[in-house]
Amino acid sequence: MSHAVDFGTVSTVGLESSPVADALAGLRANEARYFKNKYDHVFTVEPASEARSTVDWVSHILEKERGIVISSPPLEATEFQVENIRMAYVFYESGLSINVMYTIDDGGKRAVGFKLSDGMDVPEELGAFKFARQKSKLAGTIRGTYFVIKNEY
């Protein structure tokens, strides 16, 4: 069952099995606040088991572009469009958040972003990436990186 993420009151609902559930909930709330402020979009997530097509699309892009297979189980996912950008997010049990920003227009920006929750180690499958740090009132210290998508999906 889907639910809107409340960034006023951070909740771990749907993320309870994560060892860094509080930090992951803060990271999820941070994303919800961004989309509400920038696009007036309500960030709504659903269990990964109910969002299989979103999880599969993100996994397909990771594997085809960089040969990356995430070992942690996905907990929640969402997919939506703001302006001409298709967005997808998957939140994993390890505390990892992956988003795909895919501009629908030809020649637009397309990228995969990785964010690590406060307190989690860099997953082995992402060991080749360098992560920048960002402070967040909701999520503590977020470490993030990205790569540009080269192919069409």
Rank of each mutant, 00 (worst) to 15 (best):
A128R: 11
S59L: 09
V100G: 07
E63S: 13
K64R: 15
G127N: 12
D6M: 01
E93Q: 11
F35G: 03
G119N: 08
V112I: 12
A139M: 10
F129Q: 05
P123S: 03
V13Q: 13
I104T: 13
T9S: 04
L138Q: 09
G140D: 07
S11R: 08
P123M: 05
A4V: 14
Y92H: 14
R28Y: 03
S117H: 04
E31H: 10
I142T: 06
A25F: 03
D6E: 02
T9P: 00
S72L: 02
K64A: 12
H3K: 10
Y92W: 14
S18W: 08
N30F: 13
K64F: 03
A4L: 05
Q134D: 09
R52F: 14
I104H: 02
S11V: 03
E46S: 15
S17K: 06
D56F: 15
A21L: 04
G144L: 06
G108N: 11
T103L: 02
G26F: 01
G113R: 03
D22T: 13
V45K: 01
R52H: 14
A139Y: 11
F35N: 01
L27E: 03
N99T: 11
I149H: 08
V90I: 10
E76P: 04
A23Q: 07
M120R: 04
F147L: 11
T78S: 14
E152A: 11
D121H: 02
E124K: 13
S2Q: 12
V112Y: 06
V69W: 00
L116E: 01
A139V: 12
D105P: 07
G107H: 14
G119R: 08
E63N: 13
N151A: 15
D22M: 05
R66C: 07
A21P: 02
K137W: 09
Y89I: 13
D22N: 07
G108M: 12
V82D: 00
S71H: 03
G107A: 14
S49E: 15
D106R: 12
M87C: 13
G67M: 12
S17P: 00
F80G: 01
V13C: 00
M101K: 09
G8W: 07
F80P: 01
R143T: 00
E152M: 09
S71V: 00
T141A: 01
H3Q: 09
V82H: 00
H41M: 06
S49I: 15
K150H: 14
Q134T: 14
L116T: 01
L96R: 03
K137P: 11
L24N: 06
I70S: 02
N84L: 06
V90K: 08
E152R: 15
N30W: 15
R28N: 10
P19R: 03
I149W: 10
F35C: 02
V69L: 02
I104L: 14
A111F: 15
I98Q: 03
D40E: 13
N84A: 10
K36A: 03
A25Q: 03
L27K: 04
M1I: 11
E76S: 14
A48S: 15
T44M: 05
S71Y: 00
D121S: 06
K150V: 12
Q134M: 13
Y153D: 09
A32F: 09
P123Y: 08
E50F: 08
T78W: 08
T12M: 02
E46L: 14
L96P: 05
A4T: 12
K38H: 10
D105F: 10
L75A: 07
F114G: 02
